[in-house]
């Protein structure tokens, strides 16, 4: 499968944080969710791809070096950043007039159709928009030049469930319109990603902990709740980590069907991505 983005051993060092040789791909036509707690390295990863920070390692976007072909590549990228956009003293109409000078394939009609669809006023200053309206405007601005790749940094953070769902629908529609399109979306609201991402990349303390298909995480992973005696029967290679409670052990496994057969556990619960994350970070082995 061809990749839209390839990161190889990307490192970035700050005084108090290090992105440590991370490598992963975003296959063409897929949605990759980047998860991790605040400060784990999600935004630094996004900024590295955008060449906003100087890094070590290589990044290829649509088969081209991200620094050498920066301008060309960015014509094909749509970007939503959580904490940065154009000035709030502009209007949506003003943004159209600016963006058409940046993107050679800016689709003015599409932009205004989206504004109408999401009931965003075109002549009102952005600073008067609600948080949800601002995010919708950022997303509309990111997709109105029909980019091949969308890079979305925390696009649903701080929004109510209804707006979040509306926003996820925009992404679903965007990817369905063209099977070559790809999305990298970072979020600490993992439930959002469970519904739309094809792959989940979990980043913790600047390192990638896992990079797996979402279906694998949701179908093959399981949590066994058992007592000490049953836990001691489990071989170490058969589980990922465990948490010891007052009365029971909780054990995360990544092949629940086999484990069920091998150890005769009656119930193995289906974990959420949040729970899997917690086991990887807080669990013992």
């Amino acid at each position: 499968m061809e990749n839209a983005i390839e990161l190889k051993e990307v490192s970035k060092e700050y005084p108090d944080f290090k992105l440590d040789k991370i490598s992963f791909n975003i296959p063409k036509g897929s949605i990759v969710g980047l998860i991790g707690e605040n400060g784990a390295g999600k935004t630094t990863t996004m900024k590295s791809i955008l060449n906003i920070v100087n890094i070590k390692g290589t990044i290829q976007v649509l088969g081209k070096d991200h620094q050498q072909y920066e301008k060309e590549i960015k014509q094909e990228l749509g970007v939503v950043l959580d904490d940065s956009f154009l000035s709030e003293y502009l209007t949506a109409k003003g943004i159209n007039s600016i963006m058409k000078d940046f993107y050679s394939n800016w689709d003015e009609k599409l932009y205004f159709d989206y504004l109408k669809e999401f009931k965003l006023p075109s002549n009102k200053l952005i600073k008067e928009f609600s948080r949800g309206m601002k995010m919708k405007l950022k997303i509309i601005t990111a997709i109105s030049h029909n980019p091949k790749i969308l890079l979305l940094d925390e696009p649903t953070s701080g929004l109510d469930p209804i707006v979040r769902n509306e926003i996820l629908d925009i992404f679903r529609k965007y990817i369905l319109d063209d099977e070559e399109r790809s999305i990298l979306i970072s979020s600490h609201i993992t439930s959002d990603l469970e519904h739309i991402a094809d792959y989940i990349v979990f980043i913790h303390n600047g390192k990638i902990i896992f990079n797996l298909p979402t279906s694998d995480l949701l179908e093959n992973y399981g949590i066994i709740k058992c007592d000490k005696k049953d836990f001691e029967q489990l071989k170490e290679k058969d589980y990922i980590s465990y948490k010891k409670g007052k009365y029971q052990y909780e054990v995360l496994v990544n092949n629940k069907v086999e484990i069920k057969k091998k150890y005769k556990f009656e119930v193995i619960d289906k974990p959420s991505i949040d729970e899997i994350m917690l086991f990887y970070v807080k669990g013992e082995k």
Binding site: K71, K74, L81, S84, F85, L86, S87
Partner: peptide, 16 residues
């Protein structure tokens, strides 16, 4: 204006 809206990062994500 750029500083208040933290626009620098976003501007650098555009084709410039």
């Amino acid at each position: 204006y750029d500083e208040i809206s933290k626009s620098d990062k976003y501007i650098l994500s555009l084709p410039v």
